[in-house]
Simulated assay, not measured.
Amino acid sequence: MSTVAPETIDVTLGERSYPVWIGRGLLDDHARWRAALRGRHVLVISNRTVAPLYLERVAHGLDGLQWSSFLLEDGEAHKTFANVGLALDALSKLGATRDACVIALGGGVVGDLAGFTAACWMRGIDFIQMPTTLLSMVDSSVGGKTGVNLPAGKNLVGAFHQPRAVIADIGTLDSLPAREYRAGLAEVIKGAAIGDADFFTWLEQHADALAQRDETTLVQAIATKVRYKAGVVARDETEQGERALLNLGHTFGHALETAGHYTTLLHGEGVAVGMLLAARLSERLGMSAPADTQRLEQLLNTAGLPTAVPAGFDPEQLCALMRLDKKNIAGTLRLILWQGIGRAQIISGVSESDVLAVLRAATGTHR
């Protein structure tokens, strides 16, 4: 276990407030996270990639409790109602009572599905996030968004259900494949692009160190992003206003993920391309300057992230998928755009013709 004290960030939501701990060796710091368990039943939800690496370490902290595990196959395509049903069956077989806890050990798919399962069992039981990917550490593990996908689109069903604690052990990132690591950097960049121009400049200056996984730089980047998100969640937990800004690039990105059947792009890759499309749309609408778009594209490139729509995608299909986005109101497109780096805003009534023009330019399809 690391002797360096972890970063501690509090998500302040009254009686439902909780800590986010960021550091090395936290999975083995059983005294720290065991205190968040209130009952005797625990279901650990993980996947078949992560569990062989880390489940045993978590199990050592569950001595004396009645616990079991439920393992998903790896990938976004497995974030389904069917697997929620199987996870609920696992809770039933465990005899889980209202003071039971679900532990989410894995990335965003595991965290979303585990949180939704916890929200459903007996109308809501505790859960703890133990994110093992950079993307889940800086984004999906914090804020209480849970849910599953439908064939029609991503995250169309879910609930706001806050965790009891977030245990972000950066040691788990040592085993993270390079592509998954880069996908997580997209969410770090997104936070800066939305509301922190100084952090964006810092990322430009430290992009090489982040790409090389320098630990000091990495912890600072994770903590800065989590601190920003924690503040937004505290002010707007259920996304009635400001929290929607955190979805910069997501409407485009989710459409790209869905069109690719969750196999073409990782979530962070979809966000990267989506952010750039949102910047180009902002520029087309006269909201932002070309120089800001260019800085974003350069930083994404330096981070090793994709900036182009994959070949073969149809702009009309992408636009149709964007119509199903949860942020839309009264049948009109409602997008998160920006006025330049660090100045995002919610724009309602966006013209589909402008969206299509950006998508056609990005796919090389012109009419």
Score class of each variant (00 low, 15 high):
3 T>R: 09
4 V>F: 06
4 V>A: 13
6 P>D: 03
12 T>F: 08
13 L>A: 13
14 G>C: 10
15 E>L: 07
18 Y>K: 03
18 Y>E: 06
19 P>R: 13
25 G>T: 12
28 D>C: 07
28 D>R: 12
30 H>L: 00
30 H>Q: 06
33 W>K: 13
34 R>V: 03
40 R>L: 05
41 H>R: 13
42 V>G: 03
44 V>Y: 13
49 T>C: 04
51 A>G: 11
53 L>W: 09
56 E>C: 09
63 D>G: 11
63 D>I: 09
64 G>A: 10
66 Q>K: 09
67 W>C: 03
71 L>M: 15
73 E>V: 08
80 T>S: 15
82 A>G: 14
85 G>L: 12
90 A>N: 04
95 G>D: 14
102 V>W: 05
103 I>W: 09
104 A>R: 03
105 L>T: 01
106 G>F: 14
107 G>W: 07
107 G>H: 10
112 D>T: 02
114 A>Y: 07
116 F>H: 07
119 A>W: 01
121 W>P: 03
127 F>D: 07
128 I>A: 03
133 T>K: 05
136 S>H: 05
141 S>W: 08
142 V>I: 07
144 G>M: 01
145 K>T: 00
148 V>M: 05
149 N>D: 15
158 G>Q: 04
160 F>V: 08
162 Q>G: 11
164 R>W: 15
167 I>K: 11
172 T>F: 08
173 L>V: 00
174 D>E: 15
174 D>H: 12
181 Y>D: 09
182 R>Y: 10
184 G>F: 04
191 G>H: 14
193 A>N: 02
196 D>A: 12
200 F>L: 03
202 W>E: 00
204 E>V: 02
206 H>T: 15
208 D>G: 06
210 L>F: 09
217 T>R: 01
218 L>V: 08
219 V>C: 14
221 A>T: 09
224 T>P: 06
229 K>Y: 04
230 A>P: 01
236 D>N: 06
238 T>M: 08
238 T>R: 15
239 E>N: 01
243 R>T: 06
243 R>Y: 06
244 A>K: 12
244 A>Y: 02
251 T>C: 01
252 F>L: 06
252 F>Y: 15
253 G>Q: 05
254 H>E: 01
257 E>A: 08
259 A>Q: 09
260 G>D: 08
262 Y>W: 13
266 L>P: 07
268 G>P: 06
268 G>L: 03
271 V>Y: 05
276 L>D: 02
276 L>P: 11
279 A>S: 14
288 S>N: 11
289 A>T: 13
289 A>D: 15
290 P>G: 10
298 Q>D: 14
299 L>G: 10
304 G>R: 09
304 G>Q: 00
312 G>H: 12
313 F>A: 06
316 E>C: 11
317 Q>T: 15
317 Q>N: 01
319 C>S: 14
320 A>N: 05
320 A>E: 12
320 A>H: 11
323 R>A: 15
328 N>S: 11
331 G>V: 02
333 L>C: 11
334 R>A: 04
335 L>Y: 05
336 I>G: 06
343 R>D: 14
344 A>D: 09
345 Q>G: 13
348 S>Y: 04
349 G>L: 12
349 G>E: 06
352 E>D: 14
354 D>P: 00
355 V>Q: 03
355 V>N: 05
357 A>K: 02
358 V>W: 04
359 L>I: 02
361 A>N: 14
361 A>Q: 15
367 R>L: 10
